[in-house]
Design a protein around this nucleic acid. Structure first.
Lengths: 195, 195
DNA sequence: GTCTATATCCAGATAGAC
DNA sequence: GTCTATCTGGATATAGAC
């Protein structure tokens, strides 16, 4: 496989994924037909089925690429920060930034009901990035930064408020960018669990 | 309209709504066909269309009845408790109880993407019950129970953790009933905003 | 108000040339 | 690997008797 083949292959796939994330988040998976994706991506039906097998394959490829991306970002946060407090705050900051810059990405990751069209998939909350977030809190409990309590409750307390603000922002209820709320929500989050 | 007519009319509607909430939450709205609802409810296609007009009409009737029910429950909480602290805690307790006893109700209220099949509808977060929850927190701020801060942030902090736990429970991640976590999550929620 | 039978449409998916 | 043309099933919705 030479370079130009590799490039054009990647391009067709990416054009489809690019169109798909927009359509899936704006109209929903079931309201988006293959002909819609053909129009929006400029790639033909035949080509789409060649690359993805079926419609569900597009959704799956999209999800996997976004999960991998989040996971890389979370690993970087682990490396760049030493305490649970810094790590958790960095995660919220990252999620807020992605929500502002690429709302479709956050919308597809967090609020799409994947299991309705990918029945065999585990719930999002048990995906690697979510487990990673819970582990950050648990390690904070081990070091004494975080009060001792049920780890699931602690993680829900730390990230629950921020996730709600993301939800409100994506639904158009919050008018100002999430960055404006970061300090306040972080203060609440940390008060709720700090030792 | 005599009594027996009224009763049988209500029954047909209710049988359909009953079947619909189960099917919509288990399989999703788009994976549920009218023939599915016919089978599950025992009511014929013709009758369903007579009562609801179209498939979306079923979803709408369902949503309206659940919102009305929540609103009545929240009004009762307002009457029965005097402080923001007590009211907010009672709301969380109620939501936890409904999640355990009637998971489909909570699932359909909170986590279904209504706008995908009812395009003209406002986002759930701006429905009466959600606004009511925010008002409870705001009144607490007015009386000095809650620290002064952005009201949206305060509401997200108070209810965000509990809503995440509900999410985790409905997704099968939390194995114990929500009641087991009530005291801990409430402690976190209130610490995060109390004056 | 309830039913059965049926019309219509358009989705997802395939065939096969280039 | 990409395209156009096409098949097929099953969905929503209607007609019209009872």
């Amino acid at each position: 496989m030479n370079a130009s083949t590799a490039r054009s292959t990647r391009n067709a796939r990416e054009q489809v994924l690019d169109a798909a994330i927009r359509l899936f988040t704006q109209q929903g998976y079931f309201n988006t037909s293959i002909p819609d994706i053909v129009r929006e991506s400029g790639i033909s039906t035949g080509s789409i089925y060649h690359h993805f097998g079926d419609k569900e394959g597009i959704a799956r490829a999209l999800f996997e690429s976004l999960v991998a991306r989040m996971e890389r970002a979370f690993d970087a946060i682990d490396r760049e920060h030493a305490t649970a407090r810094e790590r958790c705050r960095a995660v919220i900051e990252l999620l807020f930034r992605i929500t502002e810059d690429e709302p479709e990405v956050m919308s597809y990751m967090l609020f799409v009901k994947h299991r309705e069209f990918m029945p065999e998939m585990a719930p999002v909350c048990s995906s690697r990035p979510f487990r990673h977030m819970r582990e950050m809190v648990e390690r904070g409990m081990a070091t004494g930064e975080v009060r001792s309590m049920d780890p699931m409750v602690a993680a829900a307390a730390v990230f629950g408020g921020a996730l709600r603000l993301i939800n409100l922002r994506l639904d158009g209820i919050l008018e100002r960018p999430l960055g404006d709320y970061l300090d306040e929500i972080w203060d609440c989050a940390w008060r709720s669990v700090s030792a």
